[in-house]
Design a protein around this nucleic acid. Structure first.
Lengths: 342, 342
DNA sequence: CCTCCTTGGGAAAGCGCTTACCGGAACGGT
DNA sequence: ACCGTTCCGGTAAGCGCTTTCCCAAGGAGG
């Protein structure tokens, strides 16, 4: 990058030293720069369209104003909602966010956290939820610990067992509440599209739902719990497999909205009338999906708020860390789960 | 950030000089480091868990491996699709992307490009489409020019009149094709939910559609072109206003899918049967929205591919810049626009 | 009138890295 | 045996900024 104007140029044009120029521009603490000089410097800077080099500042100050955000897939509305919250909050603090999509690749999070560490990010936020690969989790934990040891602040969202502040979505309680609600609507025979086996978030939702069913004296048959990717197509395929077994079921719970919508498509393609022929419920309350028809019963998670909270948590100089914040979901009943005629 | 291990530590532990350590680690060009030494250095680095400081490298090399991406709103699926493409392609090149949501705030893009410039980003990508505020556009153009003058590469998506490589979605042709298709389906009386007046993307889509209608000997009545925000609620409200006028219309074209879905919700709330009572078409073919019902007729834009293309374009050392790439849309007819019975 | 603060500016030492540039050693050709 | 050449390691000069330390000048207090 050639030709950029440096502080040196500004100082020369204003006829002052580098030190004075620097002080004039950032109004350095416990040091006053004469009004006249400050004026001169500011004017010179403006005339030259000077903008300080962020890396040089980072070197000298030994810190930056960037947030590193690692998530699975920005195209997934779940993650983009969280990202939106992070970015909104970041902006109010004058922070820039650099983002990485791990694409569900195990280990990628650790690599990216490493990159953020190399960049002296002030804050790193990882949102995910892998649970199976214990070794990978340990390496991530180690990397995050190193990052915090160097003065950074990390927050994990939906990613337990990490030695940093974490925000935990109460998946279990949300799914349980949903289960009870569906039971109250008269449903007794359930199936679950369970999502990926290795995703803790998915597992918790299944468990919570199972608890509710059990609590009401029912039982979730193992063959009615079908796994699959956390995507629209995953939901579609899982629903097809389920239908192939001709299950005796009146209501299917997909552990996220995206899958639920895929499941609805599969049902329709098989000629099932919705919502009369089958009730469908999801999880997350993705904004973009609120207008599917029939409108989806789901558990609302304040995703954007969670993103903002992550930033605030990281910036908050509280003691006794790591801290844990639980955020609850709220069942929203819509048209996709009508009351079952007795 | 204290306690981080530096190259100095590595060099000392390996018993070599800084220069050698550096050379051993980056295998510097036209310079060979003895195998034994290189081994020693690598081992020392691994033992110390050394990771180079990105800012120091940036300072010394005078460039970085980051892409600055500015867009309106990451929570909007249109933008998150483009972002996903950018990030996917960035990763294959070992680039990190730092992202900014302008939140539709005029001038914010310029501020963020300035920030990216300060960071010596190698590439800046702005995706947007404001057209009304000429002064703002000029300032953005100026900032981008300065950025490129300093050796960076910028690409604009859907943002014309900028002195950099730009990717232009052929909104006009897409909307025209859609108009013809709808006409072929027997529709004659159209309304348009036109989106924000100041967004070029929206304006072009309206124009293209209008052209098609005119070409077939029809006419789009001004009161049937209703503006509004580019959002679900914008579509909902616009549709309501339209219905309040009790227009003699059989088909409404919302200039993006998100609005189309909002419009469908409004129609349903007014008791209109879909798709029989009113045909609805959108634009973009947002993946998350493919399963609304009735399935939405729309114009498919390869958004993710566009994001990836932007990165490739920026990295491509082609001559005769600025270059212009047009990408076309493709009409996808689905259930929301049935053939009108003659 | 001298000393001691206080105020405000400059010189210079880094921050952690890359990369000319320099120089010693080993080697081959004559 | 001498003189290029190569090879390969070290020394040091930055990259653009902040910040400590030092110093000059002016004012207050004795």
């Amino acid at each position: 990058m050639t030709g950029s104007v440096t502080l040196h140029d500004v100082a020369r044009r204003a006829g002052v030293s580098l030190a004075t120029a620097s002080r004039a521009l950032n109004g350095s603490a416990n040091r006053v720069v004469g009004e006249a000089l400050r004026e001169r410097v500011l004017r010179a800077a403006a005339e030259l369209r000077y903008s300080p080099n962020a890396h040089a500042q980072a070197m000298a100050r030994r810190r930056t104003r960037i947030i590193g955000l690692s998530l699975h897939d920005i195209a997934d509305p779940y993650f983009s909602a969280v990202a939106a919250g992070v970015m909104r909050e970041a902006e109010t603090h004058g922070l820039l966010v650099t983002m990485a999509s791990t694409g569900h690749r195990p280990g990628a999070e650790t690599d990216y956290v490493g990159a953020f560490r190399r960049h002296w990010a002030t804050v790193v936020i990882v949102v995910g939820s892998r649970t199976d690969d214990r070794a990978a989790t340990d390496r991530l934990a180690e990397e995050l610990a190193a990052f915090e040891a160097e003065g950074g602040r990390a927050v994990a969202v939906s990613q337990p067992r990490l030695p940093v502040d974490t925000i935990s979505i109460d998946n279990r309680a949300g799914a349980r509440d949903l289960g009870h609600t569906l039971h109250d609507l008269g449903h007794r025979r359930f199936a679950v599209l369970a999502g990926p086996a290795d995703l803790l978030t998915a597992a918790e939702r299944v468990d919570g739902f199972r608890e509710a069913v059990a609590h009401r004296g029912g039982r979730l048959a193992p063959e009615h719990v079908v796994p699959g990717p956390f995507t629209r197509d995953g939901g579609y395929a899982a629903m097809q497999r389920l239908l192939d077994e001709e299950p005796d079921v009146s209501c299917v719970f997909a552990v996220n909205d995206v899958m639920a919508v895929g499941a609805m498509a599969a049902l329709r393609d098989r000629g099932v009338d919705l919502p009369a022929g089958m009730a469908v419920a999801g999880f997350d309350d993705i904004a973009t999906l609120r207008d599917v028809s029939p409108a989806l019963t789901t558990v609302r998670i304040p995703l954007e708020e969670i993103g903002a909270l992550a930033v605030r948590l990281a910036l908050d100089e509280g003691a006794d860390r790591p801290r844990l914040r639980r955020v609850a979901g709220e069942v929203v009943v819509r048209a996709s789960t009508p009351r079952l005629p007795a």
